[in-house]
Simulated scan of single mutants.
Amino acid sequence: MKKIYFIALICSLFLASCSSEPSLQKYFVEKTENKNFIAVDVSPEILNIEKTKLTPEQSEALKSFEKMNILAFKLDSTNNAQYDIEKAKVSAILKNEKYQKLMSFGSGKDGVTISFVGEEENIEEFVVYAKSKETGFAVVRILGDKMNSTHIMNMLSVIQNSNMDLDQLKPLQSMFPKK
């Protein structure tokens, strides 16, 4: 009889730990195979930098960066209604108190929001959400370990001086029509 209670306890703990609450991670997994979406995972190697030329601050920032996940919804004449539904889903997820908004700019139809998860000195994830009524939207998750806002600023300088390997970003080229 004790075994049954023990098994029931373990099962209830397991089920309680499984959150049905929507998250960006779940959203990314669900949409990866959807034809309206383009998913790209980017590793730090995309920067293709000579680490010996980095300042100590830049090295520390680079160490805190683990990977970047990009999910983009490509808008076309056939999926306007789906665009509105998906855009609302992402906005609802980002309204969760777990995502702390740093800044946003733009208008109602076009704009960018930058949020983070974690504490100011121990950021686990930066989220950039950009939307355009002409091309669609993209959600970028920058994942790391003990990141902070200074690391992001230092990473920007690393990116500017990098010899970026753009092959990892090729799937996103279809988002931007050639003119």
Rank of each mutant, 00 (worst) to 15 (best):
I4W: 06
Y5M: 00
Y5W: 04
A8P: 04
A8C: 08
C11F: 13
C11A: 13
C11N: 08
S12N: 10
S17K: 06
C18N: 09
C18L: 08
S19T: 01
S20P: 00
E21R: 09
E21G: 00
P22L: 00
S23T: 08
S23W: 08
A39C: 00
V40N: 02
I49L: 14
E50Y: 15
E50P: 06
L54A: 07
T55G: 04
T55V: 00
P56C: 02
Q58K: 14
E60T: 10
F65L: 14
E66C: 01
N69C: 00
I70G: 01
A72K: 06
Q82A: 14
V90Y: 01
L94H: 05
K101Q: 10
L102G: 12
M103K: 12
D110T: 01
S115K: 13
N122D: 13
N122T: 11
N122R: 15
N122I: 10
I123D: 01
E124K: 14
E124V: 01
F126K: 10
Y129T: 00
S132W: 08
A138D: 01
R141L: 05
I142W: 06
D145L: 08
K146D: 10
M147V: 09
N148H: 13
S149Y: 12
T150F: 10
L156N: 14
V158E: 07
I159Y: 15
Q160H: 05
N161I: 00
D165P: 04
L166G: 05
Q168T: 13
Q168S: 14
P171R: 03
P171D: 02
L172W: 12
Q173E: 15
P177R: 12
